[in-house]
Design a binder for these strands. Structure first.
Lengths: 146, 146
DNA sequence: TACATACCGGACAATTTTATCCTTTAATTT
DNA sequence: AAATTAAAGGATAAAATTGTCCGGTATGTA
């Protein structure tokens, strides 16, 4: 569905959000350990997200990554996905036609449309803060335990 | 959504199906031209599909690819996708957790489930023959014209 | 049998994605 | 100011995906 980079990015953002909600700033090493991702690769993805202003970073001692209250409240899953994977997967034709539309639809165009719409809606309506809360409450996990 | 290989494979299968429904066997060159795909790469994918017995090939002069009436009727989009991309995308966790389930769900688990179910259902309930008919009737396209 | 056709299969090449390493930059502490 | 901490950024490497090439094999035709 999403690229590895996107999966790591989303999990990282949620973990950072969870800690930010408790007033804790977190470092790369901590993040990678908590979401079970390769550290250096995760760093690259977080850089992207910081540049896209979807999360915030602070250098130096006691530095790390965090989400501002506003970011927690407003940054959606969709913004993360677009920042990392681009919009292609959320818009492009399932069969790969470069200009699939009602004018010249692929044979699955109208069947895929509602599913893609639902996916877009799903991503658009879930904020990092909301998902972070779910993890905080033990109702969701960012890596496998046990 | 799907890999390039999968996109080409589906488009090719539908085109072969369309021609088979009219009693025509088609060659690789024809296929690649009609679905706008790289010829040699398409050949590899078709080989896979022949091995998986989702379509049929005949060597030699007047040879080529075809779908038997039974294949037209019974082979589903889902079988193509599984043969080419494997089942991961149809089952795996959206956030990449290796064992995401009700026991330890990712924060999006229950939200993604219905969408994935719909996608599976969609792929499962559409046969190549059905999609080929749609193309035959001019209601669907396998490449961009004009 | 000889020949032409067209898929098959293996090797290889290019590109993209995933991943690592190391130096630089910024910020805090001593 | 010096030392320490941690992210930023660049270069590089490994792996997967996408794509090409070419000889081999099966099949039909003359």
């Amino acid at each position: 569905m999403f690229s590895k980079a996107c999966e790591y990015g989303i999990r990282a953002a949620i973990y950072i959000g969870q800690q930010s909600a408790s007033g804790r700033r977190v470092g790369l090493k901590d993040i990678a350990a908590e979401i079970d991702s390769p550290e250096a690769f995760t760093a690259k993805i977080l850089q992207q997200l910081v540049r896209a202003q979807l999360l915030t970073s602070v250098k130096g001692p006691a530095g790390g990554f965090e989400l501002t209250p506003e970011q927690l409240r407003t940054v959606t899953l969709r913004q993360l996905v677009v920042a990392i994977d681009g919009g292609a997967m959320l818009q492009g034709c399932a069969l790969g036609l470069p200009q699939c539309s009602a004018q010249q639809p692929c044979p699955m165009h109208y069947q895929f449309l509602p599913i893609r719409d639902q996916l877009n809606e799903l991503l658009r309506t879930h904020t990092i803060g909301e998902l972070a809360s779910k993890v905080q409450e033990g109702l969701g996990f960012l890596k496998q335990f046990g």
